Lab assay of single mutants.
Amino acid sequence: QWKVGDKCSAIWSEDGCIYPATIASIDFKRETCVVVYTGYGNREEQNLSDLLSPICE
């Protein structure tokens, strides 16, 4: 189960590419979260089910 502060990978809606991110907040009722893309600072809402394991850098 994901928690705030977890590192993950998420698909950015603008280009469909996968980027490393950190979970900033979680809404368990809606099963969504807000991620912050590492190195970019962009925030975006994602479905918890769409999150991927962190990418090894």
Rank of each mutant, 00 (worst) to 15 (best):
A21P: 07
I23L: 02
Q46A: 04
E57H: 12
P20D: 12
I55E: 11
Y40H: 15
I11L: 07
F28H: 14
L52F: 12
S53G: 11
E31L: 14
Q1N: 13
V36S: 02
S25R: 01
E14N: 05
L52K: 06
K29E: 14
G41C: 07
V34S: 01
K29M: 12
D15N: 12
L48I: 01
E31T: 02
V36G: 01
P54M: 08
F28D: 11
N42M: 14
P54Q: 06
S25T: 11
N47R: 14
L48N: 05
T32N: 03
K7F: 12
A10N: 04
A24N: 06
V34M: 08
V36F: 02
G16A: 05
S49Y: 06
W2G: 11
S25P: 02
E57G: 13
S53F: 10
T32V: 10
W12E: 03
I11M: 07
I26L: 03
Q46F: 06
V36L: 08
Y37S: 05
Y19F: 05
Y19S: 03
A21N: 01
P20G: 08
E31F: 10
I55L: 14
C33K: 00
E44L: 03
G5V: 03
S25I: 10
T38G: 03
Y19W: 04
D6H: 00
C8T: 00
I23S: 04
G16L: 07
E57Y: 13
I11Y: 09
N47G: 06
K29D: 14
A24K: 03
C33Q: 01
N47Q: 10
V36N: 02
C8W: 01
A21F: 06
P20A: 12
Q1W: 10
R30T: 12
T38H: 11
D27R: 00
K7I: 10
C33P: 00
G41K: 04
L51Q: 02
C56S: 14
A21G: 06
D6I: 07
I55C: 12
T32Q: 05
L52H: 02
T38P: 00
V35W: 04
D50S: 04
S13A: 08
Q1I: 07
A21E: 04
K7Q: 12
I11D: 05
G5E: 11
W12K: 03
W2N: 13
L52S: 02
D50C: 05
I11N: 00
L52V: 05
P20Y: 11
G16C: 09
I23T: 03
I23K: 00
C56Q: 15
D50Q: 02
L48V: 03
R43A: 13
T22F: 09
I55Q: 10
I23F: 01
S9H: 13
T38Q: 09
V4E: 13
V35D: 04
W2C: 14
K29S: 12
V34C: 02
E14F: 14
D50K: 01
Y19C: 01
V4L: 00
Y40Q: 08
E44R: 05
R43F: 13
E31Y: 08
C56N: 14
L48E: 05
Q46S: 06
Q46Y: 03
C33Y: 09
K3E: 15
W12C: 12
S25H: 06
V4K: 00
Y37H: 03
I11F: 04
Y19D: 04
K29Y: 12
D6S: 00
T32D: 04
C17L: 15
G16H: 04
S49A: 13
A10P: 02
K3G: 14
I55Y: 13
Y19P: 02
I55K: 03
C56W: 15
C33F: 09
D50T: 02
N47H: 12
L51C: 06
K3Q: 14
Y37G: 01
D27F: 10
G39M: 10
I11E: 03
W12V: 08
I26W: 03
A24I: 15
N47V: 04
Y37N: 02
E45A: 06
T38W: 13
W2P: 12
Y37T: 03
V36M: 08
R30Q: 09
C8H: 00
K3A: 13
N42K: 10
V35G: 01
Q1H: 12
S49V: 10
G39F: 12
S49M: 06
P20F: 12
N47F: 13
R30A: 12
T32M: 07
E14R: 15
K7S: 11
S13N: 04
C33M: 06
S25Y: 08
Q1P: 10
P54S: 08
G5F: 07
K7V: 11
G5T: 05
G16S: 04
A21D: 02
G39T: 09
V35N: 02
E45M: 06
T22G: 02
D27I: 09
K3M: 13
F28N: 09
I26V: 01
D6W: 09
W12F: 11
S53I: 10
I23E: 05
C33L: 07
A10W: 08
S49E: 10
S25M: 07
